[in-house]
Structure formats: C-alpha cells, structure tokens
Design a protein around this nucleic acid. Structure first.
Lengths: 134, 134
DNA sequence: GTCCTTGCAAAGCGTTTGCACAGAA
DNA sequence: TTCTGTGCAAACGCTTTGCAAGGAC
C-alpha cells in the first residue's frame, strides 16, 4: 500500500501517520495544515494538529517539503522541489503550479545586490472558475 | 508641518495620529505595524497598536496603502502604488523596491486561465550586507 | 448633542513549545 | 531500558473585535 522507501531515503523513519501525510502531499498539492488534518482525521482518529505540524516540519528539515505563504494567513506545503511559479485564483483560492519564469537580474546586480532566487505568484481566475462563471 | 490635503483628497479626516503615520509611511517604505508603533510612541505617548492597525486599515480602504506578506509572520505596508517588484535581503530582512518585471502570460492563457497581476519577490543579499560581509 | 477617533482588554487564529504517555527497538 | 512518535494543553505572535471614554464639530 505505502512505499516506505521514499521516506527512508530521506532519513525519516516511516510511521503510519507520516506515510499518510506523505501520501496526502503526493495526491494534493499545496494543502494547508488544517486541510491535511481534516482529510486524515477519519483515517487516523487520534490525529492532532500538533502531529501534522511535527511531521511537516520534519519533512521540511529533510528537504522533502517546502512552504509557501501566499496570503499571510496560513502556510501551504508542497513537495514540488523543481523551480516553478504559482498561480492563485482570486475566486476559489486554489493554487496551481506553472513553469518557472526567468527574471533578468542585471539591474539588481548593477545596483550592488546579489540575487539568489525569486518567487513569482500570478493572481487571476482559474480555468474552473472561468467555466463556472462564479 | 503636515500636509493635510493628501489625506483629505482620499476622504480621510486628518488627525495628528493619521498624519504622523502617513508621514512615517512616506519616509520609511515597507514598515511593519510594530515598527511604526515603536517609532511613533515617543511622539504620541498614548498611541496603541490598535490605533496603528485602525489607521492602516483605513488607509487600505481608501487605497493609499497596500500590504505585502513576505514571510507569513507580519504584514508590511507600502504606499508605492506603481507596478514594481520586491527584493528581500535574506541577511537583514530589509525590503527594497525594484522595477516591474513583465511576465509572459501566454502559456497561462493557453491553459484557460485569466491572469490579472503578479507579484515578484527576489531574495538575495542587499548592497549594505554585502559591503559589511555580515 | 452627535459623531468619530482612540485605546484598553479580550478574543481569534495559525503555529510552536512543554511535557508526558505509550509504543518501538 | 532507552529512544522516539504522538497529542493534549498551554504559550506565543500578529491581527481583529467589542466597547467605552473623551474629543471634535
């Protein structure tokens, strides 16, 4: 059912809780802590939000998830470690991955700054909401 | 001393608190609520953070400030309403404005999405920190 | 007198910390 | 036994809300 090797490869001892959260992250990109908690608490009746935080922070230390803060409210978690951009729908709030966009750092370097990375978030209306004309 | 017309132009009745906060935003870009509060509480001894929030939210409703959430911890406030990008120093946390960078929305539109705007945040080391080699 | 700015106190919400219990090794 | 995964309770930090007092007009 679960592939424990992926976690072990990153130095994480598998447990049912960790495997379920890992699987949830595979199936659902950019979830919030609460979303994960609500989705798994039926399967794991004693699950607590603290444990979700514990596991996600552990995954973060082991570099299998990273966080995105789009609205200053809650963090979102993702496993996609490739360079990419984000699109957030202003209607439904859903987040989508889009290809990386190169940014010309010339001006920044000319001004004596050193640039390491950039985060691009595009806001708009997603395909689903456009279709439903919400 | 203070130019009350800028506030009145936006339908905001001037008060000493509002003028001081307005002036602080003119002089210091991207401050946090706490920074504004700490900076002004000597001048305005009875100032409370609630009032800073009240005033900033009022300014937001009247479209003279907007918020940026870079680190999911605290909001930053800015009056620069022109299109621009942000650079945040990973050493000192300081935020700098940089010219707007165009992004090609073609692929997004091809996929049936409608894009309205984008936020670009570049992370790196600012000129000051590079000089000090912190 | 009425309206509204101000600010204390408390609540709200996402996240972290302290800690203890139980299960794994 | 020792280690560690889990989860309750509390703390924490930022922000909002309730509300009342005092000032502006």
């Amino acid at each position: 059912m679960f592939d424990t090797s992926k976690l072990e490869k990153h130095g994480i001892k598998p447990s049912i809780t960790r495997l379920k959260i890992y699987q949830y992250l595979l199936d659902n990109d950019h979830p919030s802590v609460d979303e994960i908690y609500q989705a798994l608490k039926n399967d794991l009746p004693t699950l607590s939000k603290t444990t979700v935080y514990n596991v996600l922070n552990l995954f973060g230390e082991k570099d299998i998830v990273s966080t995105i803060s789009l609205d200053s409210k809650e963090l979102r978690y993702e496993m996609n470690q490739d360079l990419h951009s984000h699109f957030q729908c202003i209607k439904c709030g859903e987040i989508y991955d889009f290809p990386y966009v190169n940014v010309d750092y010339d001006l920044i370097h000319q001004k004596g700054f050193e640039s390491l990375e950039h985060n691009l978030v595009i806001k708009g209306i997603c395909k689903k909401c456009k279709a439903q004309n919400i």
